[in-house]
């Protein structure tokens, strides 16, 4: 189903945006409280007349922020996944499998416990720091030795790091039961009940990182040909890798700061994007962004209906959706080179 011509890719992208709009509307309308489309219209264009209505307040205070957060987080995780898969040339690379989400979570939980008064802005930076620490560890491990690790072994190393970080997080929570109550829902990965005030501090970094990813997409195309070829084509590999690394930290760290560790979006979406747009990362990156947003919106919608009237954290939903795909990828196999 790969699209070949540039023109069709453009139209395909427009179609993807349309799907995104539909999913966004679905996310605002569907849920425990009944909302109709005309309510949404009124909120968007005639809000001043309807301040008393419960439905309108729910739309404005809960549903719209939630949808926006899902879009931003989904897009960021998916793009982080694309960059990681290109960088490590490993189809299983993603922020969750490589322990980057776990690193950011550990740092945030530590801060919630020991510096409860920290601002949301500060929290974002803590999350970045955690993501950066985990990425550095995995990256260093990957580069150690004469040839470094094969992609598969890097995956295993990442899983070990993730296990270590999540064990430390659990240990912290055991010592501070009070904090467990606060972070339990967040730790599962959730876009629910988070006002836009959580998104604002991160949004500039998100936008910057999205733009940055688009800007380096040409260089990523060179990078995936292999380091030797990239070198001979005149690519400055170290610089591109470093930039991509910073972008990944910003995207994944920001996503964790807003919504907690949401798994599998970073793995699943890039594969679909590549299936549609081929290997050209100038297309794969925007496609991944849009599809990631759509997937997280859909996961979030379904999370509301599973144990109605209660909600499942969306991270649980993405795990349920993503695991079969992961198993499929692992079964499909590839040469351990």
């Amino acid at each position: 189903m790969e699209i070949k011509t540039t023109k069709m890719k453009g139209w395909g992208f427009v179609a993807a945006i349309l799907v995104l709009c539909l999913a966004t509307m679905g996310s605002i309308v569907l849920g425990y409280t009944e909302v109709r489309l005309h309510h949404l219209y009124e909120v968007l264009f005639h809000f001043e007349h309807f301040k008393e209505s419960n439905t309108h307040i729910i739309i404005l205070e809960a549903r719209i922020p939630r949808a926006l957060i899902a879009i931003c987080v989904g897009a960021s995780l998916a793009i982080a996944g694309v960059l990681m898969q290109a960088l490590t040339r490993n189809p299983l690379a993603s922020p969750s499998i490589f322990g980057i989400n776990a690193g950011a979570s550990l740092f945030i939980v530590a801060v919630v416990i020991y510096i409860p008064s920290i601002s949301l802005q500060g929290m974002t930076w803590v999350s970045f720091a955690g993501a950066a620490a985990a990425s550095l560890i995995v990256y260093t491990i990957g580069g150690l030795g004469r040839e470094g690790l094969t992609p598969l072994r890097l995956t295993l190393a990442g899983a070990a790091i993730a296990a270590l970080f999540s064990s430390l997080t659990q240990g912290l929570l055991v010592l501070n039961e009070k904090a467990l109550d606060e972070v339990l829902f967040w730790l599962a990965g959730s876009v629910q009940g988070r006002g836009l005030q959580y998104l604002y501090p991160v949004l500039p970094y998100f936008i910057g990182a999205w733009a940055g990813s688009l800007l380096i997409s040409r260089h990523i195309n060179i990078l995936i040909m292999g380091e030797d070829i990239a070198q001979s084509l005149g690519g400055r590999i170290a610089v591109i890798k470093a930039i991509a690394g910073i972008l990944i930290v910003g995207l994944a760290g920001g996503a964790v700061a807003v919504a907690g560790p949401i798994v599998f979006i970073g793995i699943v979406v890039p594969h679909f994007a590549r299936a549609i747009a081929g290997q050209d990362h100038r297309w794969v990156i925007p496609y991944s962004g849009v599809l990631g947003a759509v997937l997280l919106l859909l996961a979030d919608i379904s999370a509301r209906f599973i144990i109605m009237p209660e909600e499942v954290p969306v991270g649980v939903m993405t795990a349920i959706i993503g695991t079969p795909f992961f198993v499929y990828l692992a079964r499909k196999g590839w040469k351990e080179s």
Binding site: L184, A188, V263, V316, A319, G322, T323
Partner: peptide
């Protein structure tokens, strides 16, 4: 990873 998610749920 799936079991972790289910456990949290």
């Amino acid at each position: 990873t799936l079991t972790q998610a289910l456990t949290t749920m």
